[in-house]
Simulated scan of single mutants.
Amino acid sequence: MKNILVPVDFSAFSFNAARKAVFIAEKTNAEVHLLHVVNAPSDWNSISLQAQQEFPEVEARVVEAEMKMEKLLNDAIFERSKVKTYVQGGTIYEVITEFARHRKMDLITIGAHGADETKELFVGSTTQRVIRMATCPVLSVKKNSELKSVDRILFLSDFEEDISNAIETIIQLAEIMAASVELLYINTPANFTDTETAEARMSKYIPKASKVKFQSFIYNDFDKDKGMLAFMKRNKPDLITMITHARKGKPAYLLSMTDTIVFHADIPVLSMVLRKP
């Protein structure tokens, strides 16, 4: 992990996301990239300066954001980190995901609202869209969530498809954090799997020779989302990791399991797009 992107809107949510990015960067010697996006025409970054001058209100917000960024950069949390700042214009979630893709970011750390932190629906939020569109892992963190240490990483999957790349990422993260990994399979009546089959699926992804300690769990519930939240509340992991499938083009009102967990979980959630090995 060499480059971590933090979208910044100068709220407590994005500031906490920056703190988490710094925590990870200090352990991986990564560079932190702070990006503020001013809501502007989608082609803002490619049009001429003369064309930009036709939008004086956008130009004013850009200048204001650059001043705020300079002030933020002087905060004590960045004293020991390598940090770069950027201010760009355009459609916010599109600029974030394109910036991450074009500059080959290894991780996006982004602030997320929780069920008790906003009256607005989570559906259609910037965080949700970034999770759906990003080509690199996305770490979603709440305003008050802590990440001072990571001792236990929980990974949720049905273990039916080839998740080798995701497991490899989790192992690398666990080695960096000196954490153990817990594999979780949620069993529901609608998609019931016998214990022996579920255990065999999980054991397939536990490396025979690894410094990382693995445990596997099967949790029964009528609903997969509720089962995940109930298990999380009972076992209290430090970090949740899960795969999010590409949902670009699908209606925003169709909530994925990742959306639900990010919205309700009190701890950081790392979502990864499934890549073919």
Rank of each mutant, 00 (worst) to 15 (best):
M1P: 10
K2D: 14
P7A: 09
D9Y: 13
A12P: 07
S14W: 08
S14I: 05
S14Q: 06
N16Y: 05
R19C: 12
K20R: 09
T28F: 07
N29V: 05
A30Y: 02
V32E: 08
H36G: 11
V38H: 10
S42P: 05
A51S: 13
A51R: 09
A51L: 14
Q52A: 10
Q53I: 05
Q53N: 15
Q53T: 11
E54R: 13
F55G: 05
P56L: 10
E57R: 07
E59W: 04
E59A: 06
A60V: 09
A60E: 09
V62S: 01
A65D: 05
K71R: 15
L72E: 07
L73G: 01
N74D: 12
N74G: 05
I77D: 05
I77M: 15
F78G: 08
R80F: 10
K82N: 12
K84R: 11
Q88N: 14
T91M: 14
T91Q: 12
I92T: 10
I92F: 11
E94H: 13
V95R: 05
I96V: 12
F99D: 04
H102T: 15
K104H: 14
K104T: 07
D106I: 03
L107I: 03
I108D: 03
T109H: 03
L121H: 11
F122Q: 04
F122K: 08
G124S: 09
S125E: 04
R129H: 13
V130G: 08
R132H: 14
M133K: 14
A134V: 06
A134M: 01
A134G: 06
T135H: 13
T135I: 05
T135Q: 14
C136K: 02
V141Y: 01
V141E: 02
K142Q: 10
K142Y: 02
K142R: 01
K143H: 02
N144L: 11
E146G: 01
V150K: 04
D151M: 06
D151E: 15
D151I: 00
R152A: 04
F155S: 02
D162Q: 11
D162W: 13
S164K: 15
A166T: 13
I170W: 01
L173N: 04
E175R: 09
E175S: 11
M177Y: 11
L184H: 06
Y185V: 00
P189W: 00
N191K: 13
D194V: 02
T197C: 03
A198D: 10
E199Q: 15
I206Q: 13
K208C: 07
S210D: 08
Q215P: 04
Y219N: 00
Y219I: 00
F222D: 00
F222T: 01
G227L: 00
M228R: 00
L229A: 00
K233N: 06
K233E: 06
N235Y: 14
K236W: 10
D238G: 02
I240N: 08
M242I: 03
K248S: 08
Y253E: 12
M257T: 10
V262Y: 02
A265V: 04
A265E: 04
I267G: 04
L270N: 01
L270Y: 07
S271K: 10
V273D: 06
K276V: 12
K276T: 07
